[in-house]
Write a protein that binds this DNA or RNA. Structure first.
Lengths: 252, 252
DNA sequence: CGTGCGGTTGATCCGAGTCAAGCCAAGTGG
DNA sequence: CCACTTGGCTTGACTCGGATCAACCGCACG
């Protein structure tokens, strides 16, 4: 736990002006209802690679991602790591209602969080059905996305995985000033996410570039040249047009 | 008052004597609270292979598994199927709070369900915080188990997957009269669950048998000879002793 | 007595992992 | 300012595990 890192320009701590409020579980509550929650919160900043929860360690906090990207990961006995989900701004992280955290949480980009002590959060949730409902919705959503990722890991080839990943990035990734798509992860992390080795990630990426489907002007930048081709390669990911439910996200 | 479907040996429809009540979300409610829920329920029996929910189709019902085993599955464009989770007796199935079902549900063994219309279930849940809380707990649990399965599919070798599967079966599978462990799935379904081809499943199984770790007296029966060896092969699956939270299950 | 289906076994192929260099850009210290 | 290091990325050669294709077995069925 990184102590007092609140130097420099502090994030606006006011819930009313919070950029992610509507997209997060806080959106389920009115400002009045939110106040008691806000008083027990603290704001924390994480540098790239910093971890705030460890698989197997006591689950002590629940947090909302305000800015940045957080990876949920599991460790294999041999030390390899598997990223089982990503949390974007607005997503809740941490394991409520369990004594032990079942996965680790690591900042992939510089991150700002609203952190709540788990016990206090749970007490508050118990007293506030709309909040619990919001948490439930988010969990069900994450579960569905995780199922799709499972399908990907179990059955898709490396090119399919990469193509799916790139399309997801294009759909919800941030743009660089130059209008390109930012790749917020390093090759290793992409590998951890897709269940591939870094070499395979690199090779497949370049193959797509050589085929003209994408451009890679820098190692962390992406140009989409032919999304249709990628979609064709990605192939079987459910119905191509499932709006169905609310805010669709990249991956669990 | 439930409609009159009581032909043949009816399942005891009384919630008070329900075998799975405590293990299910119903356990969160008193008999008095449960009554209004019970009146809108209907009991349904499914034969092996029968499906009650289709991926992409409207989500119309929520159900509790009273007996049997139900698979949650996803379809790939090329027709292959991936089982992303199993629901045992006591588990809830169906997709609440979404218009579209995000996976299919198919009976793996003969199954008995308590079925609720989704709309009615949601209305009831909205009015009953303890029920919503129970649903939330179950979802969080399923999510954690799904994460572990993801890890398995992404990183483990075929022998590791089979060993993990067998250990899980031994842990929670039903026994045959002869004291052996029942394998409720066919080879194809095991393959769908573990992301392997039937041939690989068959080969690995026989290899374990030849090595003396297990016995396979019938194709649907299993004898555990050397669980320690299997555990060693399965290798990295979290801490071997994570009691941590309540009712531990085989897989999501 | 065929017929069909689930399971087993064998032969072959291919894709992704692994090992091993090499590349390039960004530090870092002399 | 330049030599040297460092870490992330790329590329190549090789290996191997699991998918695929193809028989084949055995049992339950009509």
């Amino acid at each position: 736990m990184a102590p007092h890192l609140r130097q420099q320009p502090p994030v606006r701590e006011d819930c009313d002006t919070c950029a992610v409020r509507d997209g997060s579980i806080c959106g389920a509550l009115t400002t009045g209802q939110l106040m008691p929650l806000a008083t027990m919160r603290r704001i924390e900043r994480l540098g790239v690679g910093e971890t705030i929860a460890w698989e197997g360690a006591p689950s002590v906090m629940i947090a909302i991602v305000r800015q940045g990207l957080v990876g949920r990961s599991l460790l294999l006995a041999d030390g390899r790591e598997q990223v089982v989900g990503l949390a974007f701004a607005g997503d809740m992280v941490g394991r409520p209602f369990a004594a032990i955290s079942d996965h680790s949480l690591t900042a992939i980009t510089p991150t700002v969080l609203c952190v709540f002590p788990r016990a206090a959060f749970e007490r508050f949730a118990a007293a506030s059905p709309p909040l619990e409902h919001a948490v439930l919705l988010q969990s069900l959503d994450a579960l569905a996305r995780t199922h799709r990722n499972m399908l990907m890991l179990a059955r898709m080839s490396a090119p399919q995985r990469i193509a799916t990943f790139l399309l997801d990035l294009a759909e919800r990734g941030d743009r660089t000033p130059a209008g390109h798509i930012a790749i917020p992860l390093g090759r290793q992390q992409i590998g951890d996410l897709l269940g591939l080795s870094i070499e395979t990630v690199s090779r497949r990426l370049r193959a797509f570039e050589r085929a003209g489907h994408i451009g890679l002007p820098g190692q962390r930048t992406l140009e989409m040249h032919d999304p249709t081709a990628l979609a064709a390669i990605a192939g079987g990911r459910g119905t191509p047009s499932p709006p169905a439910d609310g805010r669709r996200q990249g991956m669990a």
